[in-house]
Amino acid sequence: MFGYALRRVLTAIPIVLITITVCFFILRLAPGGPFDGERALPPDVMKNLRAHYNLDQPLISQYFIYLGGVFRGDFGPSMVMEDFSVSRLISIGLPFTLMLGFSAFVVGTVAGMIAGAVAAVQQNKWPDYLLVAIVLIGIIIPNFLMANLVQLFFGVYLRWLPVGGYQPGSIAHLVLPVLILSLPHGGRVARLVRGSMIEVLGTNYVRTARSKGLGTRLILARHALKPALLPVVSYLGPGLSYLLTGSLVVEQVFALPGIGKYFISAALNRDYGLVLGTTILYVFIILALNLIVDVLYAWLDPKVRYR
C-alpha cells in the first residue's frame, strides 16, 4: 500500500515539471505582452521594466531563475498589479478558494452518494424519479447560468441571501456559491452511485451475502457499499477539474475573493506572471488531490495494489 502510494508520487513529479516548463515557454514565446499598451512606452522605461522582470536575460536562464523561485514558493512578480508578487496574491486568494472548493466537494459528494444509494434501493419508485430530475437540471444548466438564476431568485427577488461578496465567518454568503458548485458535482456522483449500486446489488456475491441471512442493512453497508463506490472514486479525479472550472465562474458571479478571480483578470490583462503562477498552482493541487484519490481507490479495490 505504501509502496503503491510512493510510486504514484514519483510519477506525479515529472508531470508537474513538464507542466511548468511547457506553460513557461508557451507564455514567454507568445507574441505581445503586458507592456504592449495602447501608448508605446519610452525605450528607457521599457528597458528598465524588462530588466526589473529579468526579461533581458536569455530565455533559458529566465526559465531556471523562475524554476528556482517556484521551489522556494516564489512565483515572481505580477506584471500588471505592480505592488504585488504572485505569491502574495495567491496567499490572499488560495485559502478562500480551497475552503469553497472543499465545502462544495464534501457537500456534493456526500449528498450525491446518499441520494444515489437511496435511488438505487428504491429503483423506479418516486424517490428515484425525483433524483433523476434534479440531477438532470443540475447537470444540464451550465453553472454560470445557474449561478445567475439563483442569485436573481434568492438574492434579488426573495432577498433571503446576500447577492454576492464575502465577509469572513459569514455562512450566509457561502450558501449560494457552495450550492452552485456542488450541484453538478453531486449530480454526477449520484448518477454514478445509482448505476453502480444497482449493478452491485445484482452481483453473485451480494446473492451469496443474502443466502447467508445477513439482513439488508449489513449487506448494504459491508458488501455493497465499498464496490459500489469504486466508480465514484475514479470519477473524483476528473470531478476535481470540473470543480475548479466551476469555482472560476462562481467566484466571478458572486464576487468572491479567491484565486479564480485573479486568474481570470490576469488572463484578461495578459498578466503572464500571474497566469503562470496560478496555473502551476492549480495543476499542483489537482495532481495532489488525484494522488489521494488513487490511493483511496487502491484501498477500496485490493486488486489494484498489485498492478
Binding site: A209, L214, P227
Partner: peptide, 18 residues
Amino acid sequence: GKDIAMIFQDPMTSLNPT
C-alpha cells in the same frame, strides 16, 4: 445461512472481492 445454506456455481464471482 443457519439451517439451510447454499453454494453457487461460480466461486470466482460469488465471493466479495473487496
